[in-house]
């Protein structure tokens, strides 16, 4: 089946982003297709690469990025949520003259149209917030 996953929750503040990550990993293990990840609202912080965590703790942002790259997943950070929270890819950082990108290259900054497209082309949309 084709799944899309929407993540509304920031990492660490609640368990939701970690649950979403486990769900994503599991559905891929089972041979399903992850059509798109969509990070929305506070969820965009999951794509931030300027993070440091203690050695004995999971780095959720890094885990997301690894999963996305390993399985070539289409991962989208909502542009309106991301810009106001300082999660920028190289293009946006240059456009707004803000120096360095803060988002993992594995995700793309794009609009809500990508969420609607995901709803139209997936068998299941699962929300985590």
């Amino acid at each position: 089946m084709k799944f899309s996953i929407v993540i509304y929750a920031a990492p660490y503040s609640t368990e939701s982003a970690a649950t979403a990550l486990r769900f994503a990993e599991t559905l891929i293990q089972q041979g399903h297709v992850l059509y798109r990840l969509f990070f929305f609202g506070d969820g965009v912080h999951n794509a931030s690469k300027l993070t440091v965590v203690a050695q004995d703790e999971i780095n959720l942002q890094l885990q997301w990025s690894k999963l996305i790259e390993e399985h070539d997943i289409d991962s989208v950070i909502c542009v309106s949520s991301a810009l106001r929270r300082g999660v920028l890819d190289q293009t946006e950082a240059e456009r707004h003259e803000l120096g360095t990108a803060s988002a993992y290259e594995s995700s793309e900054v794009a609009g809500l149209g990508q969420l609607i497209d995901a709803a139209l082309h997936s068998d299941r949309v699962v929300n985590f917030g």
């Binding site: 509304y8 939701s16 293990q29 299941r124």
Partner: peptide, 17 residues
């Protein structure tokens, strides 16, 4: 793993959060 299966067995998932 069963959570994923249940998501397939039902027509949709509605999340309450």
């Amino acid at each position: 793993a069963r959570f994923v299966e249940l998501s397939c067995e039902h027509d949709k998932v509605v999340s309450w959060f």
